[in-house]
Design a protein around this nucleic acid. Structure first.
Length: 120
DNA sequence: ACCCTGACTTGGC
DNA sequence: GGCCAAGCCAGGG
């Protein structure tokens, strides 16, 4: 797995319950700000394999990306189960739920290490 | 090795 | 607000 992919996977796994991140935001933190589509690819092909909380990733407008009604509903139910309130059929308030990372990738790395230490 | 696929984002009309 | 084009690229067939 390439470094970008590896970092993106770590970031996605690191999103806390009840919070969301956008495709572009993840791409930026992983080191390639314009690679939102790669994040899509990762979610599409690796969610199951790496147990990713895929439903916590939305587009830059705070909407669920799926066009398909059933998949969209599935994602919405996952989020609502974590307390996320929808202001529209498929849209949430990013200002309220977006997981903001202050200082880039380094911060994520530190947080992951902390989480590991807590687990010991 | 080439080709296609993706749930995207941003900036510029 | 909408439409368009460009940027991005690993994994599977």
């Amino acid at each position: 797995m390439k470094p970008f992919t590896e970092r993106a996977v770590k970031i996605i796994k690191h999103i806390p319950p009840g919070k969301v991140m956008t495709y572009g935001q993840i791409a930026g933190l992983a080191g390639s700000p314009r690679a939102a589509r790669q994040v899509v690819r990762i979610l599409h092909s690796m969610s199951e394999k790496y147990s990713l909380p895929w439903y916590r990733v939305l587009n830059s407008r705070g909407e669920i990306g799926f066009r398909d009604e059933e998949q969209m509903l599935t994602q919405r139910l996952f989020l609502e189960a974590e307390g996320v309130h929808f202001i529209d059929e498929n849209r949430i308030d990013l200002g309220e739920y977006q997981y903001e990372v202050e200082s880039g990738w380094e911060y994520i790395e530190v947080s992951i290490k902390k989480a590991k230490n807590n687990g010991k």
